[in-house]
Design a binder for these strands. Structure first.
Lengths: 224, 224
DNA sequence: AAAGATAGTGAGTGCTTACTTACTTTTAAC
DNA sequence: GTTAAAAGTAAGTAAGCACTCACTATCTTT
């Protein structure tokens, strides 16, 4: 009869609601202090419940970590490219508009990094601590990015637009620019002392440098 | 009279010797498991002494970490560029041989990263855990790299050889290629599944892409 | 209103942590 | 050869850790 939306953060919650809240708190804390640097007590406090409740939902701390991986991988879409469905990128891809394509990919990636700092930090912690997330992320996501971007570059090489370089080196260079830029903003230069530019500008510049860097030369044809 | 060199690793050591051994063990362990993931018991065991000895040399775990920072920063030369004193880079710098310069810088950096994986990991842990090392490294090293490389780029722009781009973006792109490549090899793709090339080749390719990417062009500019 | 299920807790468990104390062994200077 | 400093340790300590258990409060179903 009365289907009141439960938005009170204080009282008793349904199992699923509480489970998600614990998960959210754990993501935040693990991303801030790492797996070993976060205590179950902290997680309980951040979720507004007793420690016992945390262990009712997740048998061990490791299982909680595993659930985070699952949630991030399946729901949040680790398997999905940040530029998936982006009309600008899609159009550029179809029309072989190199600059729009690489700038679009770059912008989508930079925006994603900026929006989900917690996930970025989690990813780096998991790589250092050698948890599953890092390996999984690498195989399920990074390798596909190399395939996708590398494939595009290969096609453009066949078109005679890009010069002959190992496409994987080109992808590495490009991802290097993007990820290093985001990493700088997240980890080292949070106040953007060295370089403070909007993502749009950064994306354009990175795409520009890369494309000029791999173009077959200006005298030749551009499009086939 | 008898000045026998002490090289036995088993028996009693002088204070300084033991201190250094503890430091070495701590560097290795902190770089592997992070600050919070390493116990003083582990450090003691790895140094071949009791835990009490660790605390005789370093009053707290934090002080031990501080000593590592100091050692890495002052002795190991965080303030020094990996390419400092490199004859190839020096010659290229004097002769304004752009490709030799950037390839030389890249190679020196990549080699340094490969040789001192422990330091790289320590640096990333400290950035995530927000210890002093990260901030110090940034201010005492990274900012100088931007100044050094940015200065070179600026000069070449005045020479009319490089096109007009914010030099800091160029530096970020270049460092991005280098650091991301090393990071990939250290953290994610240890078996070099995606890309397995010697540092020389990587350095050449990165320099190549960057230089073509920022060159003023032999006939005409491309955009704008 | 009774009953069963579920949300929730306080007060533990045994183990590990960073750090200490009281004590013994080795070295070296006189 | 005595002695005093320095190298070294075994056996602690209190606090903190992941995790448990016995129990209560609240909701839902009938």
């Amino acid at each position: 009869m009365d289907e009141i939306i439960k938005c009170d953060h204080t009282g008793r919650m349904s199992g699923d609601e509480r489970r998600e809240q614990i998960l959210r708190a754990a993501v935040e804390l693990f991303s801030q202090h790492g797996f070993k640097g976060t205590t179950t007590k902290q997680i309980a406090a951040a979720s507004g419940v007793s420690e016992a409740m945390v262990f009712r939902h997740f048998a061990t701390k490791d299982e909680l970590y595993g659930a985070i991986i699952h949630a991030k991988a399946c729901i949040d879409g680790v398997n999905k490219f940040p530029w998936d469905g982006d009309p600008v990128v899609l159009k550029a891809l179809a029309e072989k508009d190199d600059h729009a394509f690489f700038a679009g990919v770059a912008l989508a990636a930079l925006n994603k990094h900026q929006e989900d700092v917690a996930f970025m930090r989690l990813l780096f912690y998991s790589a250092l601590e050698e948890h599953d997330l890092a390996e999984r992320f690498f195989h399920e996501f990074v390798e596909q990015v190399y395939e996708f971007l590398g494939g595009y570059i290969e096609r453009r090489q066949k078109d005679g637009v890009f010069r002959a370089v190992d496409p994987r080196i080109v992808v590495r260079s490009f991802l290097g620019m993007l990820i290093h830029h985001s990493l700088n903003n997240i980890l080292w230069d949070k106040n953007r002392v060295i370089l403070d530019i909007p993502n749009e500008e950064a994306a354009k510049n990175f795409a520009d440098i890369l494309l000029r860097g791999v173009s077959a030369g200006n005298s030749e044809a551009k499009r086939k």
